[in-house]
Design a protein around this nucleic acid. Structure first.
Length: 755
DNA sequence: TCCGCGTTA
């Protein structure tokens, strides 16, 4: 252990803080040290082992005993461990006092704009958790006889599961109470779906945004928390926008539900639109202005190069840029190229493989590594392994590498400036997935990926003028998504007039009304717009309202197929698809032969059911079973988790009368009669998503009369059926129906005229 | 003949 005291020197930053609405430049230290210190590990590392290694052994001494409850900042210097030294070197550390003083007393909301590497996600919860206002209090609540506990914990939300769990582990180690299975007490915990670890005495709890939304359903006042920290709000997921709305209501409300104890809220953002978010919380009702702290990050410098002229062909430009870097820049230094999708990645990969075969033996080899979400874990691993000797990796990635995963070794980023963007069209009841220009904020994020391990370069395949023309930030997801789920969440939380709910961006009236009509159709809301018992149940299920409705219908005697419906919905909601796409000709024949026993001519719904039933009937080697059929093992495991969860919920809600028999159960194919009942059951949620075969052999939707084609991923692709029902409707190259089943036209009429 | 990325007692 070191006795050395860190040199008394102000921390590196260009600290700007906002005091009473005025930006104040703290002005200290504009000198850059040479070379810059390595950036802090980001919270989104894919491999947690990587982070484990950084921990110096010295910390172990603190882990056994009970940790002394000291205020942050006044620990004895003699005990300063390397880890504490590293923490103190983070740019955010210099702002600890400002952060604490700006959220004490009457000030309940604080905004922190901290760039990558500022240390905000790991340090801010630790700063706050020893404050007096963070203690648990016993209070009287009107209408309740016994006093109730309020506060004591800090929640910190993350958009992604990996971030929540790895950050929790890191902070736990920093606080000297590491998280481990079997350790029953500690100061740090986390909660993500299917993975909870909240020890007794937890003061800081990391959770996914979806998890906090679930907690809000059960406890609208978030009584167990003294503070909620909302991290990465700039990503603007639907969930985080909903959380922001609920938090604003709690902060500006009368606090009766919390026995008068205020809830502190810290909003943390990396970039973009901070003022807008600040304004949102800066409400006149609360009579307090929200302070904004700006904290510089710590990244290596990245040189940005735009093209002189617009590029006529992005694929050619990417190819040229990659080969140019490869031939002109010394090793080590991998390349990360951002493309819009799998098709582009595969095409470029083939070009680069041809190039690699042609390069001279004295030039380093070039190893193209595709990286996109649908790729199997095994295939993704190549991108994360260090490049072999005398080889440069070039990672061809989608947006997955922008925020979700971090690829080590990257010094060069090439940015195509494009990404696929989903947009829901409420008028047509379908979504589109189209290639669009990215935002400035996204371009900055991509650029930053070159400066994580050393100075880097970013080549943008668009001009500086084109960059200036980009929008500042991406359109928030709530303006691009179906709002049905969000509206149901509001209704279930007692917000009857959804238009009064505070949202940073409100969806247009038309799409809200469409959602209300749809909810009414699903019997989730009554004629007067109030939520029904059915609606309340639907909001509880971790599936879309439509799938939830099918689950409830499955209990009715005329359908009586709840276990089957649970299997199917588990399978569908486990991921994009359980079937990997087949590539090579030979493996295709062999795999298709094995897959035949899963495929059913009734369509995708029954195929999913068969796959689940055969998988769970398999008792020898499920891994091998998946491998042989090229089935996504990760999704199948997830599907089993969801199945267990849904079965448990149905037992609790008395939808299921008794516990189902444990696996493995022998496989028995569903009879045609039962199959018919099952499909009719799905019609209760999806009768608006049907199409009839037209005389010219095309399909025309019954609602809207649009042309629709059966997606190639469907087992019914290329087949002609009298009528089809589909669970998804997406415009990409054309109007596609996905997850398709063959039905009879008169079933649609029956389903519409029921009651 | 298609397949941006997440998330849910």
């Amino acid at each position: 252990m070191t006795q050395e005291r860190p040199p008394k020197r102000r921390k590196q930053n260009d600290g700007l803080i906002n005091i009473g609405g005025r930006m104040v430049d703290l002005g200290f230290n504009k000198v850059k040290s040479q070379p810059p210190p390595p950036p802090t590990p980001k919270q989104d590392e894919q491999q947690p082992e990587q982070q484990q290694q950084e921990e110096p052994k010295a910390e172990k001494t603190k882990q056994n005993g009970i940790v002394t409850k000291k205020r942050n900042g006044d620990r004895p210097k003699a005990q300063e461990t390397p880890m504490l030294k590293a923490r103190k070197a983070l740019p955010i550390w210099a702002h600890q006092k400002e952060i604490l003083s700006s959220i004490r007393k009457d000030q309940d909301v604080l905004m922190i704009m901290g760039e990558t590497g500022s240390g905000k996600s790991t340090q801010v919860p630790q700063f706050l958790c020893n404050e007096d206002w963070c203690r648990r209090k016993k209070v009287k609540i009107e209408g309740q006889t016994d006093p109730v506990n309020v506060g004591g914990m800090i929640a910190i939300t993350q958009p992604r599961r990996v971030a929540a769990t790895t950050l929790a582990n890191r902070v736990a180690r920093e606080m000297g109470t590491p998280l481990a299975p079997g350790v029953k007490e500690g100061s740090v915990g986390y909660s993500v779906r299917f993975d909870h670890n909240v020890p007794r005495g937890t003061k800081v709890k990391f959770l996914t945004e979806g998890m906090l939304l679930q907690e809000l359903l059960r406890d609208p006042n978030l009584r167990q928390y003294s503070a909620v920290i909302v991290d990465e709000i700039h990503e603007r997921s639907v969930d985080v926008d909903m959380i922001a709305g609920f938090l604003k209501q709690i902060v500006t409300g009368n606090k009766e539900g919390r026995g008068g104890v205020p809830l502190k809220v810290v909003i943390m953002s990396a970039t973009a639109d901070v003022e807008r978010i600040q304004e949102f919380f800066d409400s006149s009702e609360s009579k307090q202005s929200v302070q904004l702290l700006r904290i510089k990050g710590r990244q290596y410098p990245v040189e940005i190069k735009h093209t002189e002229r617009p590029v006529p062909n992005i694929r050619d430009a990417l190819y040229k840029q990659i080969t140019q870097i490869h031939e002109g820049e010394p090793l080590p230094g991998d390349i990360l190229a951002f493309l819009s999708g799998q098709e582009d990645i595969e095409a470029l990969q083939r070009l680069l493989e041809d190039y690699g075969a042609s390069i001279a033996s004295n030039v380093p080899k070039l190893l193209p590594c595709p990286l996109y979400g649908q790729l199997s874990m095994q295939a993704q691993q190549a991108a994360f392994r260090p490049a072999p000797k005398f080889t440069r990796k070039v990672i061809l990635a989608t947006n997955i590498a922008e925020t979700s995963v971090t690829v080590p070794g990257v010094r060069f980023v090439i940015d195509s400036g494009k990404a696929k963007v989903k947009q829901f069209r409420s008028r047509l009841g379908m979504e589109s997935l189209l290639v669009k220009p990215i935002s400035k904020s996204s371009a900055t994020q991509r650029t930053g990926r070159a400066g994580r391990e050393g100075p880097g370069k970013c080549f943008r395949l668009f001009t500086a003028e084109a960059y200036e023309a980009l929008s500042e930030a991406d359109l928030p997801e709530i303006l691009r998504n179906d709002v049905l789920g969000a509206i149901l969440t509001m209704k279930a939380r007692g917000i009857n007039d959804v238009f009064s709910f505070p949202l940073m961006d409100f969806p247009d009236v038309d799409s809200v009304e469409k959602a209300l009509v749809q909810l009414h159709f699903l019997d989730a809301i009554a004629d007067d717009g109030s939520i029904t018992e059915i609606g309340r149940k639907l909001a509880l299920f971790p599936v879309s309202a439509q799938y939830g409705r099918v689950l409830l219908a499955a209990c009715e005697p005329q359908y009586d197929c709840l276990l089957e419906v649970i299997d199917i919905i588990s399978c569908i909601t486990s991921g994009e698809s359980i079937f990997y796409q087949l590539q090579m000709e030979e493996e295709r024949e062999e795999t298709e032969e094995l897959r035949k026993e899963l495929f059913r001519r009734e369509g995708d719904i029954l195929t999913y059911l068969t796959a689940m039933q055969r998988y769970t009937a398999e008792h020898s080697d499920r891994v091998e079973w998946c491998k042989k059929r090229k089935i996504n093992l990760r999704n199948m495991k997830q599907a089993l988790n969801i199945r267990t969860q849904l079965r448990g919920m149905c037992l609790k809600e008395k939808l299921l009368k008794e516990k189902p028999l444990p696996d493995p159960q022998p496989f028995e194919p569903l009879s045609p009669e039962r199959a018919e009942a099952l499909l009719k059951c799905f019609l209760t949620g999806f009768v608006t998503k049907c199409a009839l075969l037209a005389p010219d052999s095309s399909y025309v939707t019954t609602h809207g009369k649009h042309l629709v084609a059966i997606h190639p991923s469907s087992v019914l692709h290329g087949q002609k059926k009298e009528a089809i029902m589909f669970l998804e409707h997406v415009f990409t190259q054309k109007n596609y129906a996905k997850k398709v089943s063959a039905i009879q036209a008169d079933w649609i009429v029956q389903a519409l005229t029921k009651e």
